[in-house]
Amino acid sequence: MDSGKQPSFEEIVESHYRGLYQFALSLTGAEAEAGDLTQQAFFIWAKKGNQLREISKVKSWLFTTLHREFLQSRRRQSRFPHVEIESVANEIPPLPPALVNELDGATVLAKLRQVDDLCQAPLALFYLEDLPYKEIAEILGVPVGTVQSRIARGKAQLAALLQTKEAGRG
């Protein structure tokens, strides 16, 4: 997308719908619900997107909105505890890339869905979108250190899950 001009709705959809859907799918694990969340995010953009001053923030805005909609749909009212990266003690189990390559995307996604709830969204954004940690933190509404600790913890859990026999059968 050319950053010098204002993108149309169609251009914004074209640029972001795939990543948003994948993020939604990593959160919900259900295609229909992921499609609905993606649709809801763009629906809200169509209604309120003109309030966004910096067009370069469209991506963050969409991901933030989708995540917020997801949380609301889950009626999670309690605030997540703040865990700094220093407190993460999990060791990442060895996971050969060749093992991952034998799996299909749906299996990897299913394993991601088994990771601790708190770690799923940061981990999904880590893998799916090349966003600075600051932006991931803004999207999720938690400090940068918390984002990184959840990613590290989620990676350890995912690596362990991917090495199970069920994953191996793909």
């Binding site: 795939r18 994948q22 990897v108 991601l112 893998y127």
Partner: peptide, 15 residues
């Protein structure tokens, strides 16, 4: 290792 996981996840196509 991350690249392998990333490629798998990013290969999931929307409807």
């Amino acid at each position: 290792r991350d690249l392998a996981v990333r490629n798998k996840l990013r290969a999931v196509a929307p409807p």
